[in-house]
Structure formats: C-alpha cells, structure tokens
Computed example of a mutant assay.
Amino acid sequence: MKSHLRRALPVLAAGAMVVAAGISTAGQAAAAPPSSATSALSAAEVKLLNSDAPKTVKLSPTTGAILSVDKGISRVDTRIGKRNLCNSGDACWYTTQTPYAHFGFYGSPGTYTASMPYRGDYHTGNYRASACWTYQGSSPCRGALPPNTYASLGVTVTGTSFRIH
C-alpha cells in the first residue's frame, strides 16, 4: 500500500504545479486584458463597453475576444421565475382568498403556465408583462402592459399563465 502512495506522490505534485500555474496565469490575464481585445469594435461600441449602461457583449467562443457590444441585456435563457410572495420589483398576481399566496414573477422573459386559482388584480413590477385567465367560461388574455402598471380585474379568476416579455 505504501508503494502505491510513493508512486502517486510525484504525479500529485506535478498536477498541483499545473493547477497553481493555471491559477496565476488566469489571474494575470484577468487583471490585464490584451489591448487588442477591443480592436475590432467601433468607437461607439468601445464607449458603450466602458460605460455603466446595461449592455450585452458577444464573445468569441474560441478566443474570448469581444466581437460586438449592444445596448441592453439580452439572454438566451427564457425562463421566468415564480415564488409564493411578491418581492420589490416582481410582477405580482395577487390572491383573493387566504390561505393562497400572492405569486411573484421575476427573471428573464418567458411564460409561466399553470392553473392558478383565486387570482385577482396583478401588477407588472419592473417588467412588461401579460396574463391569461378563465372567467365564466371565457379564456381572455391581456396583452403586454408596461412596467409599473396595476391591472384591476375586480373579480376572482383562475389564472392560466403569466408572461414576462
């Protein structure tokens, strides 16, 4: 058993040196990006890149170079999150009956679909949002409303979906 350990130690030590070398190289690269990282960008893209404005950068998957810079944040992920409470900024679909919870929607654009009984008014929070429901045999959907909009249905409905645009 000790002979296995003696043979493994040089291999482990060599692996540790490679890992340590990788850490220092990664730290140096992150601290001082090459000046050519922005050479393919327009002056407007460089200005946007260096600003505090929300932006999306497209990176080369092979080199990590910045290929373009666009205004706003765009995500490939189209999942909407739902929680049983409404945090500040969430889009919120309020319940009309206890013990049912208010539903808070957040995150990236997408549609949450489920039977959500005892829903009433909703608020779009920080999002452009829309809702669908059933009421007395009909199944209407309200198109997207802008952020910070309170939508009053005035009756109890069963929600069928909620969408962040």
Rank of each mutant, 00 (worst) to 15 (best):
A144P: 04
V11K: 15
A13E: 08
R75C: 09
A32R: 13
S24Y: 02
L145W: 05
A21V: 00
S51M: 04
C141M: 09
Y100R: 07
E45R: 05
Y94A: 00
A151V: 15
A8V: 01
S3V: 05
P61H: 06
G107L: 08
R142A: 11
I164L: 15
Q97N: 11
S24N: 00
G89A: 03
S35I: 05
A151G: 01
T78K: 05
P109K: 05
T158Y: 10
V76Q: 03
L153R: 12
Y127W: 10
R6Y: 14
S60P: 02
R83D: 10
T78C: 06
R163C: 11
I80G: 04
R163L: 01
P146H: 02
Q136F: 14
G125V: 02
A14I: 03
I23M: 11
V76E: 06
T62I: 01
C132R: 09
G154V: 14
S152M: 14
R142C: 08
F105W: 00
T78Y: 04
G125S: 00
G107Y: 08
C86A: 04
T134Y: 14
V157K: 04
A43M: 01
G89W: 03
A31V: 01
L9P: 01
T98L: 02
T134A: 05
Y150P: 09
Y94G: 04
P33I: 03
V69A: 03
A20L: 13
A14E: 05
Y150Q: 15
G154S: 13
Y100F: 09
V46T: 10
A13F: 06
Y150D: 12
L153K: 08
V157W: 07
L5A: 14
T160I: 04
G15E: 07
T149R: 03
G110V: 08
P34D: 13
Y150V: 06
T96N: 10
T113E: 14
V76T: 06
P99D: 05
G27L: 12
P99Y: 02
G64V: 09
S36Q: 12
R75K: 11
K82G: 01
C141T: 11
P33A: 13
N84D: 10
H123V: 03
Y135I: 15
R6C: 01
D121P: 10
S88D: 10
T25Q: 13
P99N: 02
A144G: 02
Q136I: 08
L67N: 06
S42A: 06
A20V: 12
I23Q: 07
T95I: 04
C86K: 03
P147K: 07
K55N: 04
S36F: 13
A30N: 12
G137W: 14
G110H: 08
F162R: 01
Y122C: 09
H102Y: 03
S108I: 05
G15K: 13
K82Y: 02
A20F: 02
M1H: 07
M17R: 11
G159Y: 09
V11A: 14
I164P: 02
Y122W: 15
V57S: 06
A14G: 06
I80P: 04
T124Y: 09
K58T: 12
K47D: 12
T25V: 09
K71N: 14
P10N: 07
G89P: 00
S138Q: 15
L41A: 09
F162K: 00
G110R: 01
V57H: 03
D121N: 15
S88F: 06
N126C: 00
G22P: 11
T111W: 07
P117F: 13
